[in-house]
Write a protein that binds this DNA or RNA. Structure first.
Lengths: 193, 193, 193, 193
DNA sequence: CATGAATGAGCCTTCATTCAT
DNA sequence: AATGAATGAAGGCTCATTCAT
């Protein structure tokens, strides 16, 4: 169930709008509700009815991805190796950020347009916090790394990958490389600071 | 000497425009030449005469910062400890990025509006490459870290700090903390990859 | 039917815009969409929606006139006297040019903004070509007059009338006088050249 | 003597400005005093000092051409064959119009920026009137052709040639062809009007 | 519910002209 | 006399949003 319940045709429009928006985001075009409407062959107001703001639409595009990541978070929490669990979780996030261009801006935004987004981001943060705490309890993580650093750092990697550029395939490789470095830095206790 | 040589009154305007632009950049406002003109109490065309595009103005704002970094790069190259030199250089860059909001977008841009910017970015990249090569020669750096990763990674840290937020003072602390982590990850050879 | 089919209010605006534009053209003012919008009491974008460029609006103003001329061209082709048919056709064109100021620039333009304009101009050119060919077949026309000369010559007469000036009524007289002269020159075979 | 008397350097600037303007006119660019100044490597105000308006500059560019035509007018008046004299005079004018793009707008303008222009245009008109009168006295010209028609008709031919287009060489040919037609029409008495 | 026409603020940019140096 | 920086009105165009149909 996406929203409370939509009439069949309304649901079709909703899907269409989101699909178009996903394409636009993928090709790096800024979301403009007017533009989306035109491409979807719908009236502007129809799009506005479904999504009051471009942010709402963007978050809707990002939602499945966030949901997947939440699920991965739960799986990771079931992992008996805390460090491996954290690694795996962050790896999923970084790959998702590079794969789905809607994720980064939504993750970085201070405020959300949709309650659902807030909910998912909270859930994700909670998973991250727990995974980090568990890893820290084993002494595997430097003590000055806080749960509130995880999202910024993941966004930072995504941004670094964007600045580095390259094909989609190479970007994923770059992302993993950068994450590997960061994980090394997260693990080792600071030697002299 | 800022440009070849300006008349006294023109130089005053030039300074004023750049000062206003610096303020705008600092407060996160996108540079709009008309807006700058209004705030500077100058005619639009005056601003256009001095800076043909917002990018040119932005780069001008970033120029002193880039020049400082170039100087630091030269100093670092004189350092006899390759690892310390690299550390120090990157530390300066990260701090500059957090301190001067004009730097990040200019660093991340694929093309430059001003020749001077290109020159400085090249010089900076060259210093980075040399410092990295020297450090790598001592075996202190993981082999899969390329010179072309330095700028993206520094931009990534700056972005992570922005996402993390906080006061200006705390942001600098955060930046150094993130860099410390990254340096750890850059130093240690990859264990099993 | 002006376009495919417009909503009633949109059609009213469309008419209004064209009417204003016609007035402006008549008084010799260059068409500026912003200006048209202001005079029509409409938002700028409304005018832009209807007419993407000043040329499109100008051609729209000229369209009825072009359509009339096409119709006249067909009538002329039904005339059994080839010379009289040509004379009558050119006479209509010249009079139209002097009467409707939108016609001359549209006729002289190398490229068209609207497909409809291209279509009408082609149709007109085709009629002219046929009429000229028929007249030439009777030996009534000097051989060095090509179909591609007709439009330029008509535009030339219109321009000559504009340079000559005078009241609207006298301009029509002048136009016919100039055309009469030209027709004499077109008819008579060149004696010694 | 171009103006009352200029200092040597001022005269050099004057020449330079006019030369640049002539080039611009030839390539169909609208005269903009600022633009002229930039291309001439002179200050804007220098150009303004010499030529208060673009029209004044344009007329200055056209002046030699007008002077030549005046001279030709005088020569033509010395011709013992009135019709041939008129023909030759108009031929010169038409060729000049096609050759020198500055001439047509100056000839067509209702008012002049420079007294010298007015003077030359008057002289030219006077020559035309006399030549026409002389030809009319021999009965070679249709009676409804007035002296006030000559300039408009020459401008009309120039305009027709412009609409027709083509290379510079072909344009001259076209111009003479159109003039030949018009002369035929001017000569032959109207048969039935 | 859906439509898409209308809006108008707001940005960018150019140009003729003036005036301090 | 020459310079060229400064001006600011004016035009071009876009876009998010509303509202009548």
């Amino acid at each position: 169930m996406t929203t409370t319940q939509l009439r069949k045709d309304a649901a079709r429009n909703w899907d269409r709008i989101v699909a178009i928006a996903r394409d636009l985001v993928a090709e790096g075009t800024a979301l403009q509700l007017n533009d989306v409407a035109r491409r979807a062959g719908l009236g502007v107001a129809t799009v506005y009815r479904h999504f009051a703001t471009p942010e709402a639409l963007l978050e809707t595009v990002a939602t499945p991805c966030l949901e997947d990541l939440c699920a991965h978070g739960q799986h990771a929490l079931a992992d008996s190796d805390p460090w491996h669990a954290l690694e795996s979780f962050l790896s999923q996030i970084v790959e998702a950020q590079v794969t789905d261009a809607a994720l980064a801006p939504v993750a970085a935004a201070a405020t959300d347009a949709l309650p659902r987004t807030t909910e998912l981001k909270k859930s994700l943060a909670s998973a991250g916090t727990q995974l980090l705490d568990r890893a820290r309890d084993t002494g595997a993580v430097r003590p000055d790394l806080a749960a509130s650093d995880l999202v910024p750092l993941m966004c930072g990697i995504a941004h670094a990958v964007n600045v580095h550029g390259g094909t989609q395939a190479s970007r994923i490789g770059t992302a993993h490389r950068y994450l590997a470095m960061l994980l090394e830095g997260m693990r080792t206790a600071p030697p002299n600071a």
